[in-house]
Amino acid sequence: MANTDNILEVKNLKKYFDMGRGSVLKAVDNVSFSIKRGETFGLVGESGCGKSTTGRTIIRLYGATEGQVLFNGQDVHKMGGRDLRSFNRKMQMIFQDPYASLNPRMTVGDIIGEGIDIHKLMAGRQRQERIYSLLETVGLNSEHASRFPHEFSGGQRQRIGIARALAIEPEFIIADEPISALDVSIQAQVVNLMKELQEERGLTYLFIAHDLAMVKHISDRIGVMYLGSLVEVAEGNELYRKPLHPYTQALLSAIPIPDPEIERTRERIILEGDVPSPINPPSGCRFRTRCPKAMPECAQIVPELKEVEPNHHVACLLYS
């Protein structure tokens, strides 16, 4: 039975891609986590680790190879008919590239109003007022409704993407690296806007990013991915205060610190070698080929994600 405190439960999720000639790319491999109502769950890791594929599989842009995605207790990948239509309204996505995700042939008003039309929520003057209200909510104005995406800056386009996601009043939003394509000066504005909207509307977020400092700013809990698998899950402050997995420790050691004295004296963990191919991942622990603390048994045993401290889970034989 699903936990009623959780809006989303991901259980042993796998997403494999057939690459031909017998090769299989294991983009997401046996990933499990849950997200409580009203919280922000950050998902971080290097490029190519499977974070975005996880998000796209949750929202059904990709079909799952194995496992379950339970949204409000219902299996997303078994939905059809009215249940699927309801799900499509309750879960929305903000995409990484704010230009590629907006139709260049549609006005901003029609882009935001598309979901309203599909779900037949309102029409005419009421629809127009709803679009104007959404534009003002994200820091734009009603005059922008008649313009096209190419007439806006990157930050403004991402605000349009947020307005589109909000148009049908979803409960859950997957933000797939929503700030990575933006200038640093704009990133904080967009993240702060998302936090304000969450408080006002009771939204739940899955926030996917590789910027660990920004993820800490917005997330209640954080999951760290490496080569298709979760290696550590903990509350945000706890993860930064006491990272347990060697990979998490290396990631956090790379975050610049504004104090030059601390930055000069602290220890940096440099990972050697490249990330292995997800088509042919290492046996046992996938991180062992780059891990400074690897042991012989790491090549034979696949570590399970286990709770080693209260609300702190890690997949590492050092803690088994």
Rank of each mutant, 00 (worst) to 15 (best):
N12K: 15
K14F: 15
M19F: 15
G20N: 15
R21W: 14
S23I: 15
L25K: 14
G45S: 03
K51W: 12
T53S: 11
G55C: 11
R56L: 15
T57W: 11
T57E: 05
Y62A: 02
G67F: 06
L70A: 14
F71L: 03
R82L: 01
D83K: 13
S86C: 00
S86W: 09
Q92N: 03
M93F: 02
F95K: 05
D97T: 06
D110W: 11
I112S: 10
D117C: 12
I118F: 04
M122W: 02
G124I: 04
G124E: 00
R127Q: 01
T137P: 02
G139N: 11
S142V: 06
E143I: 08
F148D: 11
E151G: 04
E151S: 03
S153A: 08
A163E: 07
A165N: 14
A165L: 09
I174A: 05
I179F: 02
S180R: 01
A188G: 02
Q189K: 03
V191H: 05
V191S: 05
N192V: 07
K195Q: 15
E200L: 02
R201Y: 15
G202S: 13
L206E: 01
F207N: 03
I208A: 05
L212R: 00
V215H: 00
K216C: 00
K216S: 14
H217W: 06
I218D: 01
D220T: 14
I222L: 10
V224G: 10
L227Y: 04
L227D: 06
G228Y: 01
G228L: 13
G228R: 02
S229M: 12
E238V: 15
E238D: 14
R241K: 13
L244I: 06
P246I: 00
P246R: 07
Y247G: 00
Q249V: 08
P256N: 08
E263F: 09
E263K: 12
R264T: 05
E267Q: 15
E272R: 07
E272T: 09
S277I: 13
S277V: 14
P278Q: 11
I279Y: 00
I279H: 02
N280M: 06
R290G: 03
C298F: 05
E304K: 06
K306F: 04
E309F: 13
P310D: 07
H312F: 04
L317Q: 07
